[in-house]
């Protein structure tokens, strides 16, 4: 029992530790990220979404429309629609459709921020700053209370990681493979503060 208080303090201090304290200001440029932003060709993913113990699987279609806005539609395998979101080039995400079960403010907000991070949407509207850990450049975009972190190598020829969080704490990580100025082949979006994750794997030859 006498060890309980010190141990608790250690855990609390560890939890309060900043994920980004080690970063130093750098002279990176927003043009670096502009050059790495994916061109959105129509892409279909096999999708698995875990929302606090509720598991959904299906197909996620991402398509850029002629007005440059992006539509993102998630159906189950049999074709029943779960949600249909629109990301205009400026302004807020539009919910075109969402099932009653998913129609919760917190769920919509979380999905909006996750996909905004992946699509690198509306970065031009955000405040930009750059930092470095010595090895990689951190291109940081502040939107409201949220910070969107894009890590590149120092030559700025490849994107290493995508994260979202506050000034201090990392909240969401996106791991990806095969992102060559296009949407990635595979994506794993992981929330670090609660059980919410999204796994995507690209499907080819879906429109015979």
């Amino acid at each position: 029992m006498r060890f309980l208080i010190p141990i608790s303090i250690v855990f609390i201090l560890a939890a309060c530790g900043s994920s980004y304290k080690h970063l130093q200001k750098s002279n990176g440029s927003a043009t670096c990220i502009a050059g790495l932003t994916p061109q959105i060709n129509t892409t279909l993913y096999r999708a698995q979404i875990n929302i606090t113990g509720h598991y959904l699987s299906g197909l996620l279609l991402i398509k850029q429309l002629p007005d440059s806005s992006v539509r993102l539609l998630f159906t189950n395998e049999a074709g029943f629609k779960f949600f249909d979101f629109g990301f205009p080039t400026t302004g807020n995400m539009v919910v075109h459709h969402i099932t009653d079960k998913m129609n919760k403010k917190a769920v919509i907000k979380t999905l909006r921020k996750d996909f905004q991070l992946l699509l690198m949407n509306r970065l031009s509207e955000a405040k930009y700053l750059s930092k470095t850990d010595g090895k990689n450049q951190y291109h940081i975009y502040k939107q409201g209370k949220d910070y969107y972190y894009y890590q590149t190598n120092n030559h700025c020829d490849s994107l290493v990681a995508m994260e979202r969080g506050s000034k201090r704490k990392n909240v969401v990580d996106i791991q990806f493979t095969g992102m060559q100025k296009t949407l990635p082949d595979s994506v794993y979006i992981k929330h670090n503060n609660f059980a919410f994750n999204i796994a995507l794997k690209q499907i080819n030859n879906y429109a015979e």
Partner: peptide, 28 residues
């Protein structure tokens, strides 16, 4: 709205009274 088609294929089975099996084989 998106002018897109997603085509999938598979096998369908039915057995009396109330059993159905849908096996999607392509493209997933």
């Amino acid at each position: 709205m998106l002018a897109e088609k997603i085509v999938s294929k598979g096998k369908f089975y039915f057995k009396k009274e109330n059993a159905i099996r849908m096996e999607y084989t392509s493209p997933f």
